[in-house]
Nucleic acid binder design. Structure first.
Length: 550
RNA sequence: CGGGGCGUGGCUCAGCCUGGUAGAGCGCUUGGUUCGGGACCAAGAGGUCGGAGGUUCAAAUCCUCUCGCCCCGACCA
């Protein structure tokens, strides 16, 4: 149930922005705060849902656990997809498409895989419908072998690879697919966990275990670089413990991020599947020395969950904050005028500004709403919009674009026209500045966006560092866990200890970091130094990251 | 799947206990005044109260079942 304060007739509009905002950074006061968004402090889960609603990103579907991704949310996904895809291509991968339906028998071929996914598979058992005699319909014919809707595609791709690979000359096989998958989840959350979600899954086959491991690590590096440079989300690369490993993998690597509420989010995974699937699906090749061997495979993926991670990393109590690199709209120009004479002059001024920002004359198009005119930024899919809606007054438009996370808002009115100025408001800090309109060109925009991108990454990194703690006693760990964050703690490497900690505290090993040193609130922490597991008292080879996770 | 909460115009909710012919605010439409951080006036449109059964002269209200959503647990990208 929503508990959002309703916008009152008088009183609530006078609420002021809290002096402490995102990540403790000061927020400029004097700006009204959103009244349709629950604050993070009051109810984090509700805040998350409110931000999505106010940002017009997604809607609930009539089917439980599924979501509709609305144009603004999908625009974010398109920018993620395109920029990731470019990185996959640059590392030698090509795209293909494998089918949604997988024969049920395929899943059974890899023992651990079936164990991991059996319970969350949607199963197609019938084809066709017939009247049920009570005004409704019922499934008609049972099909011979039930089909499962892919929860992931290792099996069907393994089956195909077995037919495509004969020789070492066919390797490596480097294929990615952009697809939807279905996992029958008990509990769902928009973007973070829905029954159907969009993702990419890379599936590669290699000649040697070394190559497969290199590929696994290479794609992990791609994810890390992408998360930091495009999503502005700092991540820790690491290996999963056996308990958290992908069903069917020899080794799973991941990138882990820390959300504003102190919970961890697995943002991407890369698996070294060894020969598990090649043996299950008989993917064999003739080696350079004329032996027959099974290939070594990998798989790696990121999903629409990344959007949830972006929301929970950057957004504030005023709504969505987007890293400019994935903002479908980067600039919203809001014209301000009173009289008709002013209107014409201001609109002409605003239009000229839009052209100047876009870097030259080009066709403008209505974006959905006929009164919102847009120009594409040359060279990428992002837009500058000019908000000509007559029915809304400027403040309404300010909130509209602010809550959608648009990085730059430019207000132009009669005073600006007279002085050749414009009011520029940046989303990351809500700072308002009056600047010379002549300087607002494409180069300026690129600089402004780059600077906001950097601010977001720096801010998120500082937050993570401040919420990363080295702990040496179990009591200390348990005491501080409620405050959230990453906990760097010694672990004896046994599943028993891991299970006990999870049962006691709900915290899990997020990863065994690859880095030798990790920054904590108290300074760099040596992850490799030997020590003692505070839970079991057994010796430990190094620290791992514990946290409560999404 | 267990525990809790909730389904009433597009949104947020009142009405339910104590049955009697459906309300408010916001939003939307039209006209006017407005417009630099969520305006105001006037006139309108819009709901068989999640669904199905039942009790009753009469059900948003009582009973049963069911569907969905949110929160908390067990499982997961």
């Amino acid at each position: 149930m929503r508990t959002v304060p309703r916008r009152g007739r008088l009183g609530l509009r006078l609420l002021r922005a809290a002096p402490i905002g995102h990540h403790g950074a000061p927020v400029r006061t004097g700006l009204l705060m959103a009244t349709n968004i629950t604050t993070r402090a009051k109810d984090y889960s509700q805040w998350y849902l409110d931000v999505i609603a106010a940002g017009d990103m997604a809607d609930h579907s009539p089917v439980r656990g599924c979501m509709v991704i609305k144009p603004h949310g999908f625009g974010i996904w398109e920018l993620i997809r395109d920029q990731l895809d470019a990185r996959f291509k640059a590392t030698g991968h090509v795209n293909a498409y494998f089918p949604l339906f997988i024969p049920m028998s395929f899943l059974a071929k890899e023992a651990k895989h079936v164990e991991g996914f059996a319970m969350e598979c949607a199963v197609v058992t019938h084809s066709g419908l017939e009247q049920d005699g009570a005004g409704g319909l019922r499934p008609k014919g049972a099909i011979e072998e039930p089909l499962i809707v892919r929860p992931t595609s290792e099996t069907i791709i393994g089956h195909m690879y077995a037919q495509w690979v004969q020789s070492w000359r066919d390797l490596p096989l480097l294929i990615n697919q952009w697809a939807n998958v279905v996992r029958w989840e008990m509990r769902t959350r928009l973007f973070l966990r829905t029954m159907e979600f969009l993702w990419q899954e890379g599936h590669t086959a290699h000649e040697t275990p070394t190559e497969a491991e290199e590929e696994t690590r290479r794609m992990l590096d791609v994810y890390e670089e992408f998360a930091e440079n495009v999503l502005a989300i700092p991540v820790v690369k690491g290996a999963k413990s056996a308990a958290e490993r992908f069903a069917g993998a020899d080794n799973t690597y991941c990138i882990e991020a820390l959300m504003q509420d102190g919970k961890a989010l697995q943002a991407g995974t890369s698996h070294n599947l060894g020969q598990n699937f090649s043996k299950a699906f008989d993917i064999k090749f003739q080696t350079r020395d004329q032996r027959i061997e099974h290939v070594w495979t990998t798989s790696w993926g990121v999903s629409t969950r990344l959007i949830g991670g972006v929301i929970m990393t950057h957004s504030d109590d005023e709504g969505l904050v987007l890293p400019p690199a994935i903002a479908p709209v980067v600039v919203a120009i809001v014209p301000i005028y009173r009289k008709d004479e002013e209107r014409e002059a201001v609109l002409a001024y605003a239009r000229a500004l839009m052209v100047q920002l876009a870097g030259g004359e080009q066709a403008a198009h209505a974006m959905g709403n006929r009164e919102i005119v847009s120009m594409l930024l040359p060279g990428d899919g992002r837009r500058i919009v000019l908000d000509l809606r007559d029915g809304l007054r400027p403040p309404d438009k300010f909130f509209h674009w602010e809550q959608r996370g648009v990085p730059v808002r430019i207000e132009v009115g009669p005073r600006d026209l007279q002085n050749k100025k414009a009011v520029v408001v940046t989303r990351v800090d809500r700072a308002k500045n009056i600047v010379d309109a002549a300087g607002l060109d494409r180069a300026w925009l690129q600089g402004c966006l780059a600077s906001q991108q950097q601010t977001l990454l720096d801010r998120a990194r500082a937050f993570r560092t401040a919420n990363t703690h080295s702990v040496d006693s179990y009591d200390d760990f348990k005491a501080r866990l409620e405050g959230g964050g990453f906990f760097l703690m010694h672990w004896d490497g046994t599943a028993a200890t891991e299970t006990k900690i999870k049962a006691d505290t709900k915290a899990t090993i997020r990863c065994i970091p690859l880095a030798d040193s990790i920054d904590s609130a108290a300074g760099p922490v040596d992850m490799r130094a030997a020590g003692t597991d505070p839970v079991s008292g057994q010796p430990s080879n190094g620290r791992v990251i514990f946290a409560r996770a999404y």
